[in-house]
Write a protein that binds this DNA or RNA. Structure first.
Lengths: 339, 339
DNA sequence: CCTCCTTGTGGAATCGATTACACGACTTCG
DNA sequence: CGAAGTCGTGTAATCGATTCCACAAGGAGG
């Protein structure tokens, strides 16, 4: 592969001049410029990003560590992140943690070793020493979707409280009184918050959330299946199950189906995170939709702000309820929204 | 961030010795080794991958350019690619082309600039000059899923011919005679092949595939919707629609639903590419399943073979038919398989 | 006509690693 | 006891870019 030296030789100038042309530095004569450009063209020269990064200490690259690529929510997030980053002149390297802290650490380490300019993380746990060290060392970082309490890093996320209240109102209006939740891992903020929001909303209707109605999931389909089976085995099973993410809702649907039961007649179902497929499931699933694209874009902008020396604030965008048929027929369905 | 010089100073040795310890070169005394290791620990030193890559001309990184991250098929492919690559000591940088040749070129260029060790591509078109130049220049490359005819690059893909035959047999057995297809872009091999396989299979039953029954899609949901509407507007609409990928099937389902029609009673539906959600749609969708994980792993192994100087062969794995209910009730359903 | 800028250019240092080569200190063996 | 290895280490070149500094040429101004 041709290097800057080859170009310099071909154009009959020094490497310094070639570099100046490439970075359009003002003090280059028109003549030298055309000769260099011609040489670049002739040799098909492309600057070596590795060498450039070493010298300038900038990679123009962002790291994105997400909890699970197979989750359509995170896929969409990743896509919007890459799009916005590209618009701002950055590339993105994605690390998939698969909800495993060890894999998360692997990717964070890898990205730091590559000297990415900044890191976007949706932490799967309370924060490994590695990540905390990186924050302390001043690595530009932004949390997206989930965060780690007590760490001075901007957070870009959706607030589901109002939407969860709307959901509970919807369920209550349909006559449901025994409501259960499939929670996410307690180590994640989204795991905890969604349970808290649900409990608060129930309280407003004088309803309780007994421990038996809180199933411990891990944001994966299999746990949704397992927890739902537990619910169905209860002496008094719930009338509704609210899954804290879309994959666990899928698992719940499986479990209900496997027993020959029907949604919503035998068990109603709602989910956090709306995805295109929920329109086509049998029945279509009522869900709380996050403004995923906006979150991704806001997160990138915040991170780039940090990289360029500004001090971005956290961003919280509202989620909204999308009513479908999985909780029972609504005589005259209304699309509820909090925005 | 601490550099190798800091470590050398801290340990009281030269940078050469530090480097030797880090790359466990044999000729280092036990004493020097422990001192270096202690210094590394004390400083929290991590080698700069950028500098290392510049010197060694190896990045231990693979590029993966896929056609559409939002397509669950490619998401799963990306995941298995990353997994296998990690097992072999490589990282992966993913570029999402969104079925756009210009974006594909952007990512290929970006990845080449970063001096990735090898490139995995699922081309969205017939091959830009950029990609062809890269091949000619000797960049290790492997095509996955789709390929570019006439280019000397190993291909890792699934063969759907037998499965399409099984599908047509299944449809014929259910009494369907007017079969239509939503094709992918003609510029992609998968776009062409699936139509050809479908036509051949129909021929075996004495059925034709009239032009009116070949809809031109682009592997995106919206095109599936549009094409299906066209089919339904025909004086003699088809009885079955076979979508060449899962997103177009989703669009087709939308279109049917929007007219108040039902699957499979009014229009039967089948898709290429099986995904977990197809179990839960209404009705569950009959699909041709690719061994996606195996494809991803085989592609990585082939690419690493090329990088390490061997000459890997192309790999073709069989796809298989998974019968569900979207084509009509089968009196006694059998899972057909070609393997 | 001499100084002082301005402009364009090249030489060389630098980023942080790897590695060829030289060298000193020991061992070993004839 | 001297020659020939072996072993561990350091010096310095190198990868491909960017950029500071020096300098030459030419124009402007006193």
């Amino acid at each position: 592969m041709a290097s800057i030296k080859d170009v310099a030789a071909e154009a009959g100038v020094s490497v310094a001049t070639v570099s100046r042309v490439l970075n359009d530095h003002p003090s280059v004569s028109a003549d030298a410029r055309t000769r260099v450009l011609a040489a670049v063209e002739a040799l098909g020269y492309r600057p070596n990003a590795v060498a450039r990064s070493l010298r300038t200490d900038q990679t123009h690259t962002l790291g994105l560590v997400i909890s699970d690529v197979l989750n359509p929510y995170f896929t969409e997030l990743a896509r919007s992140v890459e799009e916005e980053a590209r618009a701002l002149g950055y590339s993105v390297i994605i690390g998939n943690a698969d909800e495993r802290p060890d894999l998360q650490d692997h990717h964070v380490r890898n990205l730091l070793d590559r000297r990415i300019d900044g890191l976007l993380v949706s932490p799967t746990d309370g924060g490994s020493p590695l990540m905390l060290d990186a924050v302390r060392a001043g690595t530009p970082m932004v949390f997206v979707d989930r965060w780690i309490p007590g760490v001075a890093v901007p957070v870009v996320r959706a607030d589901g409280q109002a939407a969860v209240r709307d959901l509970v109102a919807h369920l209550h209006g349909l006559g449901h009184r025994r409501l259960a939740i499939i929670a996410g891992p307690a180590a994640t903020t989204t795991g905890q918050e969604r349970v808290a929001a649900f409990r608060d909303a129930l309280e407003a209707y004088g309803l309780e959330l007994p421990d038996a109605y809180i199933g411990q999931g891990d944001f994966q389909a299999e746990s949704g299946r397992r927890v739902t089976e537990g619910f169905l085995d209860l002496p008094e099973p719930p009338e509704v199950v609210f899954a804290a993410d879309n994959l666990m809702a899928l698992g719940a649907l499986d479990a209900v189906r496997a027993r020959g039961l029907r949604v919503p007649e035998d068990l109603a179902l709602a989910a956090f995170d709306d995805i295109p497929w929920f329109v086509h499931t049998d029945p279509p699933i009522t869900a709380i939709a996050q403004p995923t694209g906006d979150l991704g874009r806001a997160a990138v902008r915040a991170l780039v702000d940090r990289i360029e020396g500004r001090r971005p604030a956290s961003v919280t965008l509202p989620a909204r309820l999308v009513v479908r048929r999985s909780c029972g027929e609504n005589p005259n369905p209304v699309q509820r929204s909090t925005s």
